[in-house]
């Protein structure tokens, strides 16, 4: 009887823990969104912001309105959506490879996408003087899948998780080198932006971009959420999952293409953003203390949003008027997490 009660109470404790953590994450996300909208290099008072926002998008013509609706709000939304997408993409890759230090950046997925996007941008800008959001996402997706294809081929040959990451990092360097080469020699005035983008930044996002990315990110996220049951079984190992009735081949294809699509969307609009994909899932697992995908999937999304909005805030405001690239900031916070994870893994193995 006592045992039964004890078991029930730990089950409830975990539920309460999850609920509190979710509430805290949602509050943090809203708070950071507000901070990002209210602060910036131009001084706009809080009452001014509220007046402009309550007026709606279309009636406003003043400077404050332009800054808010053309710069700050789309940028904050981009950080929110793309941060979530990155964290989720990292979570899927870690699950797929059963590898705690996998992520779109270290496996070279981001760099592959960067290369194809750069190529398409240069081609499109020189021909049509504009680039469509959908074309960018598509280009990035092709690049992501090509990199992932290479990583998959290697992972078939070597079963060691460290080799997988080394291979990913090498792919990443090759792609980055080629991208830099292209960007350097394509010095069209229209491509000035390309340099900033190739370093990673949320600035310059338009409301149209936000619309495109929200459609892709949201639909991919919902698909991932609907896969939470088979993902939970897959985590036990392929053979056990298969015994439970999971279609392993189909699930693997779904995991790879969804994570590729999510990180492609990020690279298309913000360039490569480092360490969010690796670090956030680990932080979230520590906070929630569970492996259940049905909890971790939404939590990773929220965590990624918060992480990126926080880092973007620092990137914008730490050394005004100079802006840091987003990867500079995410690396400072994200890399230590990876080191801690690796040390803890090693200790467990001993």
């Amino acid at each position: 009887m006592i045992n039964l009660n004890l078991r029930k109470s730990t089950r409830i404790d975990n539920k309460i823990r999850c609920m509190i953590a979710f509430a805290a994450l949602i509050i943090a996300m809203c708070a950071l969104f507000c901070v990002n909208v209210f602060t910036g290099s131009a001084d706009i008072s809080m009452s001014e912001v509220l007046r402009v926002i309550s007026g709606g998008v279309y009636r406003q013509t003043g400077t404050s309105a332009t800054i808010l609706f053309k710069i700050r709000i789309p940028r904050a939304l981009a950080a929110m959506l793309l941060g979530g997408a990155l964290a989720l993409s990292g979570y899927l890759l870690q699950t797929f490879f059963h590898n705690p230090i996998a992520g779109p950046f270290v496996l070279g997925v981001s760099s592959g996408a960067k290369l194809t996007v750069a190529l398409v941008m240069i081609f499109a800008v020189s021909r049509f003087h504009m680039v469509n959001s959908a074309v960018m996402i598509l280009a990035a997706f092709v690049g992501s899948m090509l990199s992932l294809g290479f990583v998959l081929i290697v992972s078939h040959r070597v079963r060691q998780m460290s080799m997988l990451v080394v291979c990913g990092v090498m792919i990443s360097y090759i792609c980055s080198a080629v991208t830099d080469f292209i960007v350097t020699f394509a010095d069209n005035s229209d491509i000035v932006n390309l340099h900033n983008w190739s370093m990673g930044t949320f600035s310059g996002t338009t409301m149209d971009n936000v619309r495109a990315m929200s459609v892709v990110v949201m639909s991919a996220t919902i698909c991932v959420f609907f896969l939470s049951k088979p993902i939970g079984a897959y985590q036990l190992g392929e053979n056990y999952a298969q015994n439970l009735g999971v279609n392993i081949k189909l699930l693997r294809v779904a995991l790879i293409s969804l994570s590729g699509l999510l990180s492609a969307c990020v690279t298309a609009f913000a360039g490569p953003v480092s360490f969010v994909g690796i670090a956030v899932p680990h932080i979230i697992k520590v906070i929630f203390h569970t492996s259940k995908p049905i909890v971790l999937i939404p939590a990773c999304f929220l965590g990624g949003s918060i992480f990126c909005m926080l880092c973007d805030m620092i990137a914008r405001t730490a050394f005004t008027p100079t802006e840091l690239s987003i990867s500079t900031v995410t690396a400072i916070f994200g890399a230590p997490v990876v080191i801690i994870v690796m040390i803890r893994r090693k200790r467990d193995e001993l």
């Binding site: 985590q235 190992g237 053979n239 492996s291």
Partner: peptide
């Protein structure tokens, strides 16, 4: 049909 294999079951935080 249910199995118990020599392969270790991966349980991260379970």
């Amino acid at each position: 049909l249910s199995v118990l294999l020599t392969e270790r079951l991966r349980a991260d935080i379970m």
